[in-house]
Computed example of a mutant assay.
Amino acid sequence: MSERSVRAKISRLRQAYAPHDHRPLGGYLVAMGTYTGVTGLLATLVKVTGRPVPVRPSTADIVLVSIATHKLSRVLTKDAVTSPLRAPFTQYDKPIGSGEVMEQVRDSGSGTRHAIGELLSCPFCLAVWIATGLTGGLVLAPRLTRLAATALTAVAASDFLQMGYAIAQQAAHRPARPVSASPG
């Protein structure tokens, strides 16, 4: 099948799938293919290195990877400091607090570029990739992966403590509400 016929089929599929909205199905296919390739590469590395794959990951590793995935996905998709990584695919919209920014996907005309923009601006979308990488890391380089995941987990815990502190500080500076006498 030629590239031209593949593009024509994707175009017809996109029109049938979302006639009133631009959905970059071709770009999504590229992203899924890349994810499949990365996952296949991880599986191949595990097999070639002979690393044992755990029958069941420990609860501690699941919690550690979960929190680290959450934090790294927020850092990469929302952190103001990492915006240069997203800038080729997104456009700044507004600050959303706690050092995070909201960005919109650039309308570049390229389905692949659009799909990458969606991936890099969506913490839920990127979390799948990050969790896959960290899980592969637990098999291929467990000590280093646990160390990095521990640092990310500590930062996530610190974020929640900072937010809790800010809420407590605001509450402490609010004027007291007058107590009304209840009838009766």
Rank of each mutant, 00 (worst) to 15 (best):
R56F: 14
L76M: 08
S83M: 09
T77V: 02
M102D: 14
V53A: 00
G50C: 12
T112W: 05
P19I: 07
K71V: 03
D79K: 01
A60Y: 06
A43P: 09
L64A: 03
D61G: 03
Q91N: 12
R106T: 05
V65C: 06
D93S: 15
T77D: 00
L29P: 10
V48Y: 14
G50H: 02
V63F: 12
I96H: 06
S110L: 04
M102E: 15
G109C: 02
T82K: 00
H22N: 13
A80G: 05
L72P: 01
L85A: 08
S58T: 14
D21S: 13
K47N: 13
E100V: 01
G50A: 12
G33V: 01
T36M: 08
E100H: 15
L76K: 01
G99R: 00
D21H: 14
I96A: 11
V81H: 11
I67K: 06
G26A: 03
T69H: 10
V75H: 07
L42E: 04
T90V: 10
R86S: 00
L85H: 05
D21G: 08
D107F: 11
R106G: 06
S83A: 11
L76A: 02
L41D: 07
D21L: 15
P88A: 08
P24S: 04
P95H: 12
Y35R: 07
I62Y: 06
L41P: 04
L29V: 13
G97I: 09
V38G: 02
A80Q: 11
T77C: 10
T44I: 06
Q91C: 05
P84V: 03
K94N: 09
G26R: 04
T44K: 12
L85D: 00
R86K: 08
A87R: 14
T82W: 01
L64T: 10
T59W: 13
G97V: 06
L85C: 00
I67R: 03
R56Y: 06
R106F: 09
P57M: 05
R56L: 13
V30E: 04
I62M: 12
V101W: 14
R23K: 14
P24M: 03
L41M: 06
K71G: 02
K94Y: 04
P95F: 05
H22D: 12
L72H: 00
P57F: 07
Q104M: 09
S66F: 04
